[in-house]
Structures are given as C-alpha cells and as structure tokens.
Simulated assay, not measured.
Amino acid sequence: MHKSAMPQEGTDTFDDQIRIVLVETSHSGNIGAVARAMKNMALGSLWLVNPASFPDETSYARAAGASDVLDNARVVTSLDEAIADCVCVMGTSARGRKVPWPVMAPPDAAAKAAEHSAAGPVAVVFGRENHGLSNEELQRCNFHIHIPSNPDYSSLNLSMAVQVMCYELRMDYLRGLEGGDGSPYLKPMNAPGDAGWDVPPAPVKDVEGFFEHLEQVLVDVDFHRREKPGLLMTRLRRLFQRAKLDRTEISILRGVLTAVQKSAGTDQPGSNTSKARSAAGEQE
C-alpha cells in the first residue's frame, strides 16, 4: 500500500462543516467519483438531493476506496432540506445571469467558505450533469462560484468540478496551518538543505575540490587547456552551482572523474582523486 510522504493531520479537513451538495445527480457513477474527489482532499460530508439511483454498485465501484464517504452520505428530497442549517451557501454557476449575483473564482470561494465555516455549516452546491442548477436554486445561494474553464470547451464533468473546489478548499486549509506559508505541507523540497532532503548540502571546500578535480580531468583527456581556458570552466561552474549539489552527489561525481582518469591512465594511486572514488562507492 502506498504511504503518503506527508504526515496526516486528520481525516476531515473541516470536520464536516463544509458539505458538498449534489442536486439530482442522474448517473450514480458520478456520485462515486465525487466521493473519491472529496476523500482525496480530506472532505467527508456529502449530501445528495434526489439522486436518480443511490446507493448502488456503480457508485461504490467508482468511489475506489472512498466508500466511507458514500456510507455517510445524506440523501434528502429537496435543496432546502440540504441547506436549512447552513450559514452560507455557494452554488456553481456560469456567468451571464440577467441579474448579477456575487460571483467568485474557486480560490476566493474556498477562502470565503473556510471563513464562514467557523460560524456553522457551509454548503457548496453542484447541479445536474446536463444543465446545472436552476435559477431558483441559484437564488438560494449567497455566492456563485465560476470555474474559469476554456470558453471553447467549458463543460466540466461533475466530479471534475467538485475536484477543483475540493482542491482549493484543501489548499486554503493547509495554508492556514502553522502560520500560513510556513506550513510544512506546502513547502517545496527542491534542493539540499530543504526539509526532507536526505543528504546535507556539500560544503564549499568539497565543491571547490570537485571543480579542481574536474578541470584536471578535462586537461588529462585533452578537452581543456589551462593556457587557453576561455569560458569553459566558468560555464561548468555555473552549471554545477545551479544544481546545488549535496555531499553524496559530490562524492559520486568525484568517483566518476577518478574512473575517467583511471581509464585514461592518468590516475595516481593514493592521490586525492583515488580517495574520492573510494568515498563515492561507500556512500552509494
């Protein structure tokens, strides 16, 4: 079983304060796909308004491990019942209504939903697969959410639309952990020295030793002339400095250089380059 690289802070991002509401879903497989999208982003409160078929085998098959979300789903007969106790209701909609309504993109909607969830339940409502929410249903919403998809191909599958919103809700939640951008869940790991990297950065003396070794090897194989250096070593320095090498990577590169020297017959037994090759073998 795959184990997540990140520690898990909980199974429900908002402790059921934010609910996903699906109105009159016609294909039960879409309900299962929505459950999967929700669980991916640690959301667990699913409400279904008059689904055509639920529960059934198709919905559970499409849930792919998110059957607990389906087990706990609430089935109701009207949108009013699904949102009656909510302090904020947000409905997905295309732009262009005759009477403008407060509308926002998913990131802003997620932040607004999270803000209101501190006071009570928040509903994020998705309409039917073929024509979305009716005007009457949209008028029950405090805010409309517009996903800015390709205008030439704007129709999103129901589960895709839910995934977009669940992702934005998840990101907003994670940004709020441990001081916003300081959250370990969002910090990148790109180079030695970043949290989670397995080997410390190479110190300057080791990097300089590598560059000296590299230059010597290039001289040994007649690729570089010290009397006419040009910009070769400058460009190679820029290349390797950009890579931000760690200790093990330096040792591996030194070992490669030593192997080249040995093959070329220029390696001196007992030299620093020979020791570097041995060190690289020990650290692999």
Rank of each mutant, 00 (worst) to 15 (best):
G10C: 10
T11L: 02
T11E: 03
T13N: 06
F14S: 08
D15R: 08
D16S: 13
D16L: 03
Q17G: 08
Q17C: 06
Q17K: 07
I18K: 01
I18V: 07
I18R: 01
R19L: 07
R19Q: 15
V21C: 04
L22I: 02
L22F: 02
S26K: 02
S26G: 07
S26I: 04
H27I: 15
H27C: 14
H27T: 15
N30H: 11
N30E: 12
I31A: 06
I31V: 12
G32S: 12
G32C: 12
V34D: 10
V34I: 09
R36E: 10
R36Y: 06
A37N: 07
M38R: 01
M38N: 01
K39A: 14
K39Y: 08
N40G: 05
N40I: 08
M41F: 05
A42S: 15
G44S: 07
W47A: 12
W47D: 07
W47Y: 07
L48Q: 02
V49D: 04
P51A: 00
A52N: 11
S53Q: 13
S53T: 11
S53C: 08
S53I: 06
F54W: 05
F54C: 09
D56F: 00
E57R: 13
E57G: 10
T58C: 04
S59V: 02
S59K: 02
S59G: 09
A61C: 03
R62M: 15
R62F: 05
A64L: 15
A64N: 13
A64V: 15
G65D: 13
G65H: 11
A66W: 03
D68M: 06
D68T: 12
V69K: 02
L70C: 14
L70S: 14
D71I: 04
A73V: 11
A73N: 09
R74E: 15
R74P: 12
V75D: 05
V75S: 13
V76T: 06
V76Y: 00
C86F: 03
C86A: 15
V87A: 06
V89E: 05
M90V: 09
T92F: 03
T92A: 14
R97Q: 10
V99R: 13
P100W: 00
P100F: 01
W101R: 14
W101K: 14
P102C: 00
P102M: 00
V103A: 14
A105I: 14
A105W: 05
P107N: 05
D108Q: 14
